[in-house]
């Protein structure tokens, strides 16, 4: 039974990160499972600290036990210990204390040097031929703009990105509101996103897998539900994804989908969201051009399913209290038509 529980825990920890009770969306989120050179280096530093601390802790505990036993034995043999020890013993004790101080200093300097070396190493990643992504942290979602020298190849998406394995990714971090922090534990350490002061980091994924990212600086009510997914995949799969993202949105075919598009363009949705290929071009909320290609909605709060989407549109405040999106009390037929339309936005 314990084995089964451990196995289950291991599967959850390794492969999935829960978005809501009972439902799981693939992706790892662990600093102990590095998937890139920088996170590997950070993990190595963690292990250095960890094992050195273990050695020091064990030694200290052993010395304490030794001292207690020794003192009790001596008390049994010679009666109460004298207040003033013999000068020879005093000298030996002085040497021991000096030696321990020296060992502690060396250990601390060893850690300092390791810290410094790791800091240099994670910054030394070459950004030649890097894929540039401009990331904007909003309260409480992520905007990703994939930069390109050709303006026609620039595209924007939200809360889920795909990246090619083995290629350096250079992200430029922005914030229009408060301080956020960009963190994909499996790929790199944290980096703050400061309003009016763009910051940069570069990282690389060496393992094709799906990772979770998370805002790591408290940024308001829904800080905890400000997540994103990073899908690292081989170059050709990434190129296919990029080509699909560059496409304009799918146009509605059935009557219901057409009605849904009309609802989108003539109610509150259009004030904040963009759908490429329609007249919707606002940038206050996530770009929905390829909404159906994403696995989650509401910045990783819920799996992208019709029911969740309906609940989210009708009353987002029950799912993410305080979120910027207002409740939209659409009549049922309009809501169903809108869902029909949103589901085709692959």
């Amino acid at each position: 039974m314990i084995a089964a529980a451990t196995a289950r825990w291991a599967t959850l920890a390794d492969n999935d990160f829960g978005v809501t009770s009972g439902e799981w969306v693939r992706g790892t989120k662990s600093v102990l499972d590095p998937a890139g050179p920088q996170s590997g280096r950070i993990h190595q530093l963690f292990l250095d600290y960890f094992w050195l601390s273990v050695v020091v802790y064990v030694l200290v505990v052993l010395f304490v036990i030794f001292a207690v036993i020794l003192r009790r034995r001596r008390a049994r043999w010679t009666g109460p210990i004298l207040a003033e020890p013999a000068p020879s013993r005093e000298k030996l004790r002085g040497w021991l204390v000096g030696l321990a101080t020296l060992a502690t200093t060396i250990a601390l300097f060893f850690l300092l040097a390791g810290d410094h070396a790791a800091g240099r190493a994670i910054r030394s990643l070459s950004t030649d031929n890097a894929l540039k992504i401009r990331v904007t942290g909003h309260q409480w979602w992520w905007e990703f703009r994939f930069e390109d020298e050709a303006p026609s190849k620039i595209f924007t998406t939200a809360n889920e990105i795909h990246i090619p394995v083995g290629r350096t990714i250079e992200v430029e971090l922005h914030s229009p509101d408060v301080i956020h922090s960009f963190w994909v534990p499996n790929l790199h350490g944290k980096r703050d996103m400061i309003p009016g002061h763009p910051t940069r980091i570069a990282f690389r994924a060496d393992k094709a897998s799906e990772y979770w990212g998370q805002c790591a600086e408290f940024c308001g009510y829904e800080h905890a539900k400000m997540r994103f997914r990073v899908v690292a995949e081989p170059e050709e799969k990434f190129n296919a994804w990029k080509a699909a993202q560059l496409q304009s949105s799918v146009q509605p075919a059935t009557d219901s989908q057409k009605k849904g598009q009309y609802v989108f363009l003539h109610t509150t949705c259009v004030m904040c969201h963009t759908i490429q290929g329609t007249t919707a071009g606002a940038m206050m909320g996530p770009d929905l051009t390829h909404l159906a290609s994403r696995k989650t909605i509401a910045a990783g709060s819920l799996p992208n399913k019709r029911g969740h989407l309906a609940g989210w549109i009708s009353n987002p405040q029950t799912i993410k209290p305080g979120v910027r999106m207002p409740a939209n009390s659409l009549p049922p037929d309009q809501l169903q038509a809108l869902l029909d339309y949103l589901e085709i936005l692959k």
Binding site: H266, T267, T268, V270, M271, P326, A327, N328
Partner: peptide, 8 residues
Amino acid sequence: GGKIPSFQ
């Protein structure tokens, strides 16, 4: 009208 919720 119809584009902005009334509380906004």
